[in-house]
Nucleic acid binder design. Sequence first.
DNA 1: GACACATTATGACTTAGATCAAATCGTTTC
DNA 2: GAAACGATTTGATCTAAGTCATAATGTGTC
Lengths: 242, 242
Amino acid sequence: MLNQNNMLNQLKVVCSLCSLRELCLPIGFGPEELQQLDTLAGSKRLVKRGEYLFRTGSDFTSIYAIRGGFFKTSVLHDDGREHVTGFHMMGDIMGLDAISNEYHVCDAVALETSEICEIPFEKLSELSMIMPVLHQNLHRIMSREIAFDHEIMLMLGKMRAEERLAAFLLNLSQRFSARGYSAASFQLRMTREEIGSYLGLKLETVSRIFSKFQEEGLIAVQKKLIELKDANALKRLLGGLA
Amino acid sequence: MLNQNNMLNQLKVVCSLCSLRELCLPIGFGPEELQQLDTLAGSKRLVKRGEYLFRTGSDFTSIYAIRGGFFKTSVLHDDGREHVTGFHMMGDIMGLDAISNEYHVCDAVALETSEICEIPFEKLSELSMIMPVLHQNLHRIMSREIAFDHEIMLMLGKMRAEERLAAFLLNLSQRFSARGYSAASFQLRMTREEIGSYLGLKLETVSRIFSKFQEEGLIAVQKKLIELKDANALKRLLGGLA
DNA sequence: GACACATTATGACTTAGATCAAATCGTTTC
DNA sequence: GAAACGATTTGATCTAAGTCATAATGTGTC
């Protein structure tokens, strides 16, 4: 069977190379340790703006951790309509929805040149058998994705357009903030059309509501640069909704 | 550490008592074997119509497999609005979205008197450490839920009301069929309002579209009894959409 | 079985967001 | 740097679905 030390070594490599904070940090590596390990060579790779990381129907062999950059995942339909299922940034993991099928069920496209780490799923599974915490964390990550998707379902099913945009901006803000970037000011990596597709709105509606928020002093918009001027007002807009 | 035989025994008990087809069958138990084991006593339990299996905020200790009956899961908001996140029947597993939080993030209510099996998550985790296939299957189930949620997001974000109802009816039909019940005729366990909440529509809209489908000969509706008269037409209604 | 309450159906009207259209602004290409 | 294309903004209309109202029907309770 597996040699535990050998496996542990691989684990370190896999983890370190991916900045898989969610998978790795709870195991006991400190940020510095991780940084050191980070300098090792490995299966990280650049994906240029507009390039596909994977496509619907392609074989599922790996999940992907984003080291840096920005992705969208989407499903494309016969009639040409695209639905954006998510936006993903540093530390996020993509491809988990493919495990059950053995092929990918969405496209993943880089919205800016990005650095990703490919984690062969089979290897991860092996490792997680001897590293209970890794195993737990994988569950936790998948579970979190399910819970988050339920929030999006709520948004799509129950919120008005303004509420969706407010929730979207606050979510982005919170995620940038959690990664050490400014919570109040950030660059949108996606077009108005992609935002609309994600939120179940048309691009014109997105544009109009950005303008409206700006008029009301809630945000400042300069093309792709968004500044949250009154995050509390945005939160109030959400009212009782999560 | 763990005694493997002891664990294996527990596995058999857990599996058998739950009819956890998805978790257990691939391991190599045949249906008959499962049936036999099924007769053992264990942590199965009845949940009466209207009773909660778990509530938002309650401690997460177990996931639940449905042996028989029908549930809805929903999130309730400060302002009293409810959003139904799913309908669940025999063989489905509920509570997976709670793993990451250690408390439940939705309510689960029985829509008819149902029999469920409680699976302590800790025990399942232990077992899955020594039963790789169990472990894999858990991943697969969670992954499938993520992929399915993405389909719902597409539905809520991109489909018109009629398309949503058609997709809803076809999905129910397919699931009943997969469990050995009629694909063409089934009893709705939920109200029009709950259907509407799930699909992001108002109950009046649901009612109107049922009437319209009936006029057009696509379905026959008698209160809660639905008969699909022309499933192909319903599929055509979905057009290019999944 | 009668009362109270929940669910469903249907009509009349309103509205949020879609659609269509046009102008502006930005960015990439050669 | 001019041409060509894509993204964004804004306006004018349209429409699918929501809201409000009422009646009918169904269901549970004592």
